[in-house]
Amino acid sequence: MKPVIAILKRDLLLAWRQGGGVGTAIGFFLTVMVLLPLGIGPDLGLLQKIAPGGLWIALLLSVLLSADRIYQIDYDDGSLEQMTLGPVPLELVAGAKAMAHWLSSGLPLAIAAPFLGFLLNLDTKLILPLLGAMVLGSIGLSLLASLGAAVTVGLRKGGLLVSLLVLPLYVPVLIFGISASAAGQAGPDISGSSFIILLAVTLVIVVVTPIASGAALRTFMR
């Protein structure tokens, strides 16, 4: 397990040193927060109704865009090549890098998002359930985004392709994420059950992503 921890530590150190990652992601998130009212109109009542949905969509887009570079740099400078010779399979390397991406940009975004909800006049009692759902959901979002990055490493227009490949896979996380954070808004309190389903969806993603990423990276190594 030591090599996996080594990768995790290194990627977090790099994310910290380069800093840019989280900053730009939150910047993007805020941009979406501005565009929504501009598009839908300043009517606070309406904004409040779409607030959870708007926050979730802004979150998933920010996580998706910040994941584009996870493997690209290591692929270009030869690190990925060296890692294939390492004692751990490429799947674990992919898992460690995806985890590092989640910790360095998915999680901070998920923690910041509910508190930026006031921009959309988010009902304050919704902040906590939203926080819980987003923290859990951001795991799935980050891992799927890292899978998209692994499948398009080394491609020119990779960014566009990642969105097309990954966004459909975001549908379950989005649906159960929002209902988990609705906290009794729609009918009987179903946020509890949807939280569990969101957990189940996340577990499936946690299992599938490293395997698929490892296979994709190995193809690009050849």
């Binding site: 896979l169 549908v171 379950p172 599938v208 698929a212």
Partner: peptide, 14 residues
């Protein structure tokens, strides 16, 4: 294959 694994999950969630 990844898409195929997700089809039932997406169907169920929708």
């Amino acid at each position: 294959l990844v898409g195929f694994i997700n089809v039932p999950i997406i169907k169920f969630s929708v």
